[in-house]
Amino acid sequence: MKLEHILNKYDIKIYFQPIISTVNKKIIGYEALTRGFKQDLVISPVHLFEEVKTHHLTFEFDKYVRTLAIKKFVPYYEQNPDVLLFLNFESSLIDEELNFDDFDFYNICKIEKIPPSNIVLEIREDKIENSKKLKNFTTFYKNRGFNIALDDFGMGGSTFDRLSLVKPDIVKVDRSIIHNIHYNFIHSEVLKAISKMCNKIGAIVLAEGVEQDDEILKCLKTDISIYQGFYFSTPQDKIEKEYDNIAQRISDISVLNLKMIKEHKEKKEALLYHTNNYSNYVIEKIKTMNLEDFSCNKIQEFLNQELKLEAMYLIDYHSARQIGETIISGETKKFFQPAQHGDSHYLKEYYYITKTSKDQTFISQKYISHATGNMCRTFAKCFCHDDKDYILCLDILV
């Protein structure tokens, strides 16, 4: 079967889905997506590409739809020379015995008078077995002015070593990580790791498949500002018809983000205020006892349940060693054990920062407690008793 048979069988169109910058509050690009139709029926892209693959026409069809996409992009580029076209192609073809020039990205752009710098080549690196070919391909097209994006990162066999190998301009984090990320602590931490790594190598992170405002707000807290997904717009044949709706969505997110920042600031200030007051109360209690007796029996009676206090422990200011046992309000989980009398806290962030901060207090970011395995923050405060300096630490459940 020849490519003409496929093209006669299906009506092939290119739809655009916008890429949004929440910082610039505008559309910065479009991803070109292939859609097939047969009379009034929509043909699944998966089915379409599988049929093409069955007839060994993957390369020819891939080149055909890339040409359609670049042609469709021309009026958008003419209207806004800064806008980008995110161009998918069958990444597994990189493993084939093809010359990189055969992909024809450069020639098509030259014919349509689109600068390569306006094109982002999306690569599914987990579909490519030969790392050397992957590196050579990306270097080849970078040298010709194209931008490189790793697509669906975090899905399948995506690995961090490919980031250092490819050094992409953009990393598109897969929907499987972004979906309901505001409820998923593990995915949230994975996203932080990806974002941190990308910042180190100078790559921009793009969150794919966003559908809820809460997903975007969570990503914004991870310093991600580029988005794509149904929240802003579904893929459209004529995306310009959605411009007003997209602008409203961008505005909505800006308002929600400012509200979130304000609420987070107020919540943290309230937590700091109440925890500081409670620490003063505990310190006054401690000063009435012999610190050699700092134990569960002596302290348990005034553990503050409203503050969701999980653990309390005392550290010698100068030696960083713990005085007495760790007082736990709940149960510890398997593999987790609270620090014991005499254990060193010298390498702990809260010990160092509390000592060096101006007001000698500190409240940490959220982390998994080594004492219980629960999510908590540590509040630490210095105080003096009988001419000796100490640091009181309170672990608060979050």
Rank of each mutant, 00 (worst) to 15 (best):
L3G: 06
L3W: 04
L7I: 04
L7R: 02
I12S: 02
K13R: 09
Y15V: 08
N24W: 09
K26C: 07
I27D: 00
I28A: 09
G29A: 10
A32R: 04
A32Y: 00
L41A: 07
V42N: 09
S44C: 01
H47K: 12
F49N: 08
V52I: 14
K53Y: 08
L57T: 08
T58D: 06
F59K: 15
F59A: 14
E60M: 14
A69E: 06
K71W: 03
K71P: 03
V74S: 14
P75N: 08
E78H: 15
Q79N: 15
L84Q: 13
F89G: 00
S91W: 00
E97P: 06
F103A: 02
F105V: 09
Y106P: 00
N107V: 06
I108K: 03
P115M: 01
P116L: 04
P116T: 11
E122M: 08
I123Q: 02
R124M: 15
E125Q: 12
N130G: 08
T139R: 11
T139L: 05
F140I: 01
Y141S: 04
R144A: 01
G145F: 06
R162N: 13
L165D: 10
K167G: 00
K167W: 07
P168N: 05
D169S: 13
V173I: 15
V173P: 06
D174E: 10
S176P: 09
I177P: 07
I177A: 01
Y183T: 11
I186P: 00
I186Q: 10
S188W: 07
S195W: 10
M197T: 15
K200W: 05
G202C: 11
G202I: 10
E208D: 11
E208W: 09
G209L: 15
Q212P: 08
T222E: 13
D223W: 03
Y231Q: 06
D237V: 13
I239N: 06
K241T: 12
I250P: 01
S254E: 14
M260T: 15
H264T: 15
K265R: 14
K265A: 12
E269H: 11
A270H: 14
A270P: 06
L272H: 05
Y273Q: 10
T275V: 10
Y278C: 02
E284H: 09
I286T: 01
F294S: 03
C296R: 10
K308Y: 03
E310A: 08
A311E: 05
M312G: 03
Y313P: 01
D316T: 08
A320W: 02
Q322P: 05
G330N: 14
K333C: 03
K334V: 14
F335E: 12
Q337K: 15
P338Q: 11
A339P: 05
L347P: 05
E349I: 14
Y351N: 02
I353D: 08
D359Y: 07
D359Q: 13
S369L: 08
A380N: 03
D387L: 07
Y390G: 03
Y390K: 02
D395T: 05
I396W: 07
